[in-house]
Each structure stands twice: as C-alpha cells, then as structure tokens.
Nucleic acid binder design. Sequence first.
DNA 1: CAGTATCCAGTACGATACTG
DNA 2: CAGTATCGTACTGGATACTG
Lengths: 135, 135
Amino acid sequence: MYVSRKARRAVAGITRTRTCPPLLNDGGAVREVLDRISDKWSLLTLGALRSGPLRFGELEKAIGGISQRMLTLTLKHLVEDGLVSRTAYPEVPPRVEYEVTALGKTLVPLVIALAEWAIEHRDEINANRGCSPSE
Amino acid sequence: MYVSRKARRAVAGITRTRTCPPLLNDGGAVREVLDRISDKWSLLTLGALRSGPLRFGELEKAIGGISQRMLTLTLKHLVEDGLVSRTAYPEVPPRVEYEVTALGKTLVPLVIALAEWAIEHRDEINANRGCSPSE
DNA sequence: CAGTATCCAGTACGATACTG
DNA sequence: CAGTATCGTACTGGATACTG
C-alpha cells in the first residue's frame, strides 16, 4: 500500500466510477478501509493481540521481525482507527498495554480466518509460483 | 505493502522469532501470503471477479480507478499465485478473460466478508478518526 | 520499558506514450 | 482490445541512535 492515511483522509472519495455490483465498488468505503488495514503490519498486530492485551515489548516479540518504528506507527494508526486501545500505567518503569477494542474484536475473526486460509493454502500458492513448498 | 514479491521469494524465511501462539507467528506463512494479497489492488480485483469472468476492460471499469499498469501487474501476480486464471481467445480484436480459480474461490468469501466488514464499520472508523461519516 | 528522531534504500504506484 | 515501456515520485519501512 502506498497512499498515506493523511492524504487519503484528505481526498477520500476520488476515483469513483460505479459500474459494477456495489459491494466492492461503492465509491471508496471498502477501498478506504482496506487500505487502512492492508499495510505490512496492521493485521499481524491485530492478530497478535487477539488473545489478550500485550505490552509494547511483548508485541514486538509476538509479531517478530517488526521494527520499533513500525510497531509504534502501526499501533498509533490502530489506536486512531479505534481498533486498539492504549493504556499507560503511570509507573516506573513505564508500562503500556495495548488491547483490541470492541470494534477491533469484530475484525479479529476475519484476521484469523485470513491467517488460517494463508496457512492452509500456502503450499499450494508456493507450488503455483514454482517455489518449493514451505521453503 | 511494499517488499517485492521477487525479493520476498528470495529471502522467504528471515526475521523469525517464534515467541507467541503459533497462528500468526509461524515463521512467515501468514505474513508471506498476507503480503501477497495486501497490496492496493489484489483483493479488490479478486472481489470484482467474484461473480464471474471478466475481460481486461471490464475489470478496469469494475474496479474503478485502477491504472492499466496496475491492473496488468495485479492480474499477473494473481495468475502467478494461481488465484485467477487467464484465458486468451485467438480472435481479432483480442479477447482475454480472467476468472477466479478453484483456489481463488476459497479466498473470495473472506474478501467479501472483509468488504462487508469495511462497509459496516466504515462510519465508526471515520468517526474515531475525527472524520465526518461517509464523507 | 516504551518509545522518538533521523536518515535512506527500495519500491509501489500513477501518468503517459506506444504496440500487436 | 489488451496490453507493454518508460519515467518520476511519494511513500513505506528498516537501521541506528537517542530520551523520559
């Protein structure tokens, strides 16, 4: 994905054409939301939080391979969108917990379904691509 | 999303950490597949094909706002992954039809679910972001 | 611990022009 | 009609260093 969320907010609603059944071409709703969650880490982050709140560092490990920078940004966006809540406890050392909100919880099952699909069909896809399975 | 599919193929398997429940942190399967379908147009394209084969031009209109270049690329990738089939009819003028494969069909319901979720929760998300609903 | 700041490489994407 | 070729750019995301 590549159009910034800010830019997207600003222009929300361009490039409409409306020629096909409405579900995926409704003038941007789907695209808008899809864009928002289809960056490299959002779904993965949401998935990592599916079974309970996690702290920043825990998330970092749970997701695996994410940079601090991207975790910060992704969380910020998820919080902005209301999919994840952030709770900072005024302690030393600081403790911050992230948790899926009620809204986020409605998305989590889809994320899980997607993840399951991915695992289930991974080898098939790789085979199609001429990759050795599960390499 | 942003790491090229080719690059991804080459490195498939780095950045593993393995600390959390296995569903979303299985060393890359989910990430690998997620990356593949979470570019700007793949899911949208797949969704546009959900109710039957479409020609290149029809897809272009159905998706709305996609450039020829991106449609070409997206289709190429989907075909590579085995999610979509391409059939060229040797006629003049040329006619090419794209259709969801059996594998692709297993993903379509998830795409639709995601789309429905997006539509259903769009306003809520926009509200959270401080946007006027459905603007 | 939980971030922020800065730098920079790579690339996804759009626009435009051209072709069988 | 169904693409390909080329170019420019805004953006993503990693690395590294630093802070309350």
